[in-house]
């Protein structure tokens, strides 16, 4: 019969420092790969909407004409599938979890006016080119 097999371990634990950290006083450390939340380089985004279609829980929405990218961080499951799908690699998964809240809310990112203007110009050029091509086709 073996009684008190655990006693040496239990006693030595009395004199060891705790393995937990004093969390609010000492900040939590996340490893580099930690899947915390999604960040976007909004000016690199081409509003293709692949991320919105890939998302398993439908938390992302993209508005091409307004140049916005919206995410409901409370719905996001941080799977990272949008990061994999993004063709411009402007989405990144960074450490740091969403803080809890009483109500769900979404965050909207707006492209800067310069990028919007450049895009509008590009669209106009493309439209002009298409119109010219159409006109040329009609002439023939």
């Amino acid at each position: 019969m073996a009684i008190l097999k655990f006693a040496p371990e239990a006693l030595s634990n009395l004199f060891k420092p705790p393995v937990t950290t004093a969390y609010p006083a000492k900040p939590a450390e996340y490893p580099e790969r930690s899947r915390g939340h999604i960040e976007i380089e909004i000016d690199d985004c081409i509003s293709c909407g692949l991320c919105a279609r890939a998302c398993p829980c439908g938390t992302i929405s993209v508005d091409r004409s307004a140049g916005t990218w919206t995410i409901d961080r409370y719905d996001c499951i941080a799977c990272g599938f949008c990061v994999v799908k993004c063709p411009k690699k402007c989405l990144t998964m960074v450490p740091g979890y969403q803080t809890p809240g009483g109500k769900k809310s979404s965050v909207t990112y707006q492209k800067s006016p310069e990028v919007m203007a450049a895009e509008a110009k590009k669209r106009e050029e493309a439209a002009a080119k298409a119109a010219a091509a159409k006109a040329a086709a009609a002439k023939e």
Binding site: V19, R33, S34, R35, A78, C79
Partner: peptide, 30 residues
């Protein structure tokens, strides 16, 4: 045996740290 319970979970925490380090999630790997 609560003392033993904590001991097991303390060891488990090391495994979870490895998982977080390599995949970014403590239990959901993705």
């Amino acid at each position: 045996f609560e003392n033993l319970f904590y001991q097991c979970w303390r060891i488990r925490e090391k495994v979870l740290d490895l998982q977080e380090m390599t995949c970014g999630g403590r239990v959901i790997f993705s």
